[in-house]
Design a protein around this nucleic acid. Structure first.
Lengths: 221, 221
DNA sequence: CTCCTGTTCAAACGACCGCTTGAACTATGC
DNA sequence: GCATAGTTCAAGCGGTCGTTTGAACAGGAG
């Protein structure tokens, strides 16, 4: 391991660990896949931007799709963690409202990710883009990372909306999922300008208010 | 023009006009682009399925992107026509409600297109897929076909929702646009089963109710 | 019949794709 | 020192991409 920069390494100052080839590949993959989608982005474009050799992708990940899978897993991990944490918290408190549940879903996807500067915006766009990639195969790959907590949200939403049928609760959930992804990918923001932290907060509040109203009064009785 | 089958031609019965190569290309392009997206679909896959030569694409359209543009224009034409017709009708009546406006937007996209059998489902999926293609270039191509009536809808929605700010009305509009496209592309229906006419009607009603609630009470005052 | 225009065809172009190979390089363990 | 395992590299594999070419084919007009 030439450049892993373990703690106390002599080559770099203590607080600037070297970005490994693997990390650079994941970072650039997030950016490029988020811009052009999976099919529209070549491994060569990624490796050139990451100052790495093409063979490095197959060495570190095995294939283009495996690189994408690793990037999705890494990007979704903190979002899923935060969502789980919030769900635990709400369930411990007991009887969460629809708004609390929606907020616990939306904010980790927008806030947590957009509030950390350019990198966060890149990650959000990546997730949003992959979630609705034209290829069913790629969408499934995202769904595999997102599904584990879906059942918990559905159950909690059903409890919070006893008047709504299970079908209509599921309908609301996929609408929430879809709208979040579209805003994450910035495909809905006509003005191409990137959102800063403040805008992202406003977006989150607007989206939550929109969804709360739809859940509260827009589902089949 | 070998096989145009003008009226009264002797080769085919009166009511079965021959499908020209150009039409076959557009039909198959709708289907394949709707399945795999623009980047994920090759001209060869299209021409093979259409029983046409690859060169026919460049002869009839000029390029792959021009084929897509022609397919989008053909698919959107009846939707735009119907939306314009409904808007005219509502405006002639005066003071349309938010629900009437939302219905006039959603139904031409789902109903009109899904109610005409398999072909309609293919067209709907095609439109929905292209509207949020990963490539900005392709999305713009769709937006160019969709934009002309956008201003009319925004103005009408603003009048019907005087309490909402212009920004929030625009926010609701893009959400409506996005949710419709996602349902059209069937990316939100987890069960991969194709929707028949009856299901499509239910979907339209559910989506309209969801959006009406969100517009009525989910926008910034 | 001959010309002419519109259409289809097989074949090939250069470019790029994801992936593999085998050697070179690098830090570490003995 | 030397062997070893981890990593990077230039080069090339077979295949597919969108596009182009020039010839063949088909009907209509003179």
């Amino acid at each position: 391991m030439p450049e892993q920069a373990v703690a106390g390494g002599k080559e770099n100052s203590v607080e600037t660990p070297v970005e490994t080839t693997r990390e650079r590949l994941l970072n650039v993959a997030e950016q490029r896949f988020g811009e052009g989608g999976y099919e529209g982005t070549s491994l060569r474009a990624i490796t050139v931007a990451a100052a790495a050799n093409i063979a490095a992708v197959n060495y570190h990940f095995g294939s283009k799709e495996a690189l994408l899978r690793a990037a999705v897993a890494r990007a979704m991990a903190p979002v899923n963690t935060e969502r789980r944490r919030r769900l635990d918290q709400l369930e411990a408190k007991g009887s969460p409202t629809p708004e609390e549940l929606i907020r616990a879903f939306i904010e980790p996807g927008l806030d947590l990710v957009l509030r950390r500067g350019d990198r966060g915006a890149v990650v959000a766009r990546f997730i949003g883009r992959i979630a609705f990639d034209p290829s069913q195969r790629i969408r499934d790959l995202y769904a595999a990372e997102s599904d584990p907590i879906e059942a918990r949200y559905l159950a909690a939403l059903q409890s919070a909306l006893p008047h709504a049928t299970p079908d209509s609760v599921a309908f609301g959930y996929v609408n929430m999922l879809g709208l979040l992804a579209l805003h994450q990918s910035q495909a809905l923001s006509r003005a191409p300008g990137l959102q800063d932290a403040e805008d992202s907060g406003k977006l989150a509040e607007n989206l939550i208010a929109f969804l709360v109203a739809a859940f509260d009064r827009g589902l089949r009785a």
